[in-house]
């Protein structure tokens, strides 16, 4: 066995990564009202409380609407930008792409605050819609990163071949480009969806009276009484994201198998 030290470190690191997550179900099923050891006993009460919470239901609905819209719009904008950056050369490209990718490193609070000022300035009422505006901005760079990989692994001569064989530019896109980058599009949508579902700061500033899942969670974290329910919610979210990620990974591998391409790495 090679590098036992590194291997040991890697497993310790995994424990560090997973410790907070493993604790979630432990406290979610613990009948004690205080999040502390020793554990009291087994209960499903917190899940009961979770599923009968009307505000939470509203928050989930809002978040899903926002996340689905973000996934669609960010991926659409991502397709245009990824296509432009992988296929065309034009003056000013690094600057243009730099601006589009800027939210990747820009602290979200800056995005949130600046958007808030503009929206208030032109008198747009804060709502789910304004959250979508912000989330699309924040998720598009991630979508582009995923789609860039998909588009740049696409051989340009495939499109030329279809065009050469009599197809138009649009039918070439539909018949050749789209099917081949579809796994990338699916990944991009899943990523944008997940980012939006989890995003707190922008929603915190731009949602107005509306509540989203993260803003609801944040508001509840100050009430110790509510924490066990949040643990139950966290458990559900972890399971949901593992299921989603597994589907995404499966779709990606199937896409690779279908076109005989080389497996070039993980979901991210």
């Amino acid at each position: 066995m090679k590098s036992p030290g590194l291997r040991l470190f890697a497993f310790a690191y995994l424990i560090f990564l997973y410790a907070p997550i493993v604790l979630l179900p432990i406290f979610a099923f613990n009948s004690g009202t205080i999040i502390a050891f020793p554990l009291k006993g087994f209960t499903l009460h917190w899940f009961d409380q979770l599923f009968s919470n009307a505000t939470l239901g509203q928050a989930l609905r809002n978040s899903l609407i926002i996340a689905v819209s973000t996934a669609i719009f960010a991926t659409t904008l991502g397709i245009f930008a990824a296509r432009a950056s992988t296929r065309y050369r034009f003056p000013g490209k690094p600057g243009i792409m730099g601006l589009i990718m800027l939210p990747l490193v820009l602290p979200e609070i800056i995005v949130a605050v600046s958007l808030l000022i503009v929206l208030l300035g032109i008198g747009v009422p804060l709502s789910i819609f304004t959250v979508i505006l912000g989330h699309v901005l924040a998720a598009t760079p991630y979508a582009i990163a995923v789609l860039n990989a998909a588009f740049s692994s696409l051989d340009k001569s495939l499109e030329e071949a279809a065009y050469d064989l009599g197809e138009t530019k649009w039918s070439t896109f539909r018949l050749i480009t789209l099917p081949l980058v579809l796994p990338g599009i699916v990944s991009s949508m899943l990523m944008a969806f997940t980012i939006s579902l989890d995003e707190f700061i922008i929603a915190f500033f731009l949602a107005g009276e509306q509540v989203t899942l993260p803003t609801y969670i944040f508001s509840q974290l100050r009430f110790p009484k509510q924490i066990p329910m949040i643990m139950a919610l966290g458990t559900c979210l972890v399971i949901a994201s593992i299921v989603l990620l597994t589907i995404a990974e499966y779709a990606r591998r199937r896409g690779i198998a279908k076109t005989g391409a080389k497996d070039t790495g993980g979901f991210l």
Partner: peptide, 29 residues
């Protein structure tokens, strides 16, 4: 434009559409 010219091309990379069968490739045009 290229799609209206009486020419067809064999590409250096062959540009075989990877998501189609051999027959679908040949019959593409």
């Amino acid at each position: 434009p290229a799609n209206k010219r009486p020419t067809n091309m064999v590409f250096q990379s062959y540009a075989i559409f990877p998501h189609l069968t051999v027959a679908e490739n040949v019959g593409f045009g």
